[in-house]
Computed example of a mutant assay.
Amino acid sequence: MPKYYFIYNVFAASVVFFSSSALAFDLGGMINSDQILNLGKSLPQNTDNTSASAAGLANFSNKDQVTSLKQALTQGAETAVSELAKQNGYLGNDKVRIPLPENLQKIAGLMQTVGMGKYADDLIASMNRAAEAAVPEARKLLAGAVKTMSVDDAKNILTGGNEAATQYFRKKTETALTGKFKPIVEKSMEKVQLAQKYDQFAAKGAALGLVDQRDAKMDDYVTRKALDGLFVMMAEQEKAIRANPLEATGALAKKVFSAIKN
């Protein structure tokens, strides 16, 4: 089709341009959301808060600590998934909306100037709809991570930082979630012709070292961003419960989180 042929040529021309201007091409010019969303990799710990939290737990048995945490985590995970799974859960939320891959953002302006901005907008909508379709798959895996939590896991989360639970979930479920999300994303995106053209363009860009290998396939990119968005929302739920324990579901969870906050 002529419109896709034109877009593909724009992609191909961009690869040539970028390869001839590699030294001047600033891949860091866009905000790198991966750096923001890479939760739990290098967060500093506040030892004073950790000590205070441990003291607050002294009046609760190990069983109570684990039970209260499971109540809160089940609540937070379910809320995060439910919010994202509804229509516009990703697309309508600035915090988790999946943007065009960075290398494609570089030419999106050109598409706008030639009256083809609609195709970029349609691609963004398709990516986010794919994420919304995939995210319900997280429920079972997140629930499983809660059920298998050990006493030590619970103590580390309760006395950890504001995103300690989110870090735990990411460590325990990210690989399995990727396996669950990707087939749904693939199915959602397989009829999006612009996504197929992107894969052709990005493969050439990756070979030239101009495109992050992780972004060389649209399905991989959308799956990764969908997971990032899920963990962002889970972190928000965790912070809210820590900041206001009375928002926790279950009387025991309210008591334990109030104790570690004080």
Rank of each mutant, 00 (worst) to 15 (best):
G89M: 12
E190W: 02
D228M: 10
K172L: 07
T166A: 12
V256T: 08
N262V: 14
E102Y: 05
T67G: 03
A143D: 14
A12C: 00
A12V: 00
E238L: 09
Q75G: 04
Q75Y: 02
K204R: 14
P136I: 07
Q35L: 14
D26N: 14
A216F: 01
D153F: 06
K239T: 14
I98C: 07
K261Q: 12
D34C: 05
D48I: 13
R97I: 14
P245A: 05
S33L: 09
L57C: 07
I124W: 00
D152C: 09
R242V: 10
N93T: 10
N59D: 10
G28C: 02
A203F: 06
S82Y: 03
G92T: 13
F257N: 09
Q112M: 04
E186V: 14
F169K: 11
K41H: 08
V15K: 01
A203H: 11
N103L: 01
F231N: 12
G29C: 04
E174L: 11
E186D: 15
D220W: 06
K225Y: 12
S19C: 01
N103I: 08
N32R: 08
L252G: 06
L100I: 02
T74N: 14
A176P: 05
T178R: 10
D48L: 13
A253V: 05
F25T: 14
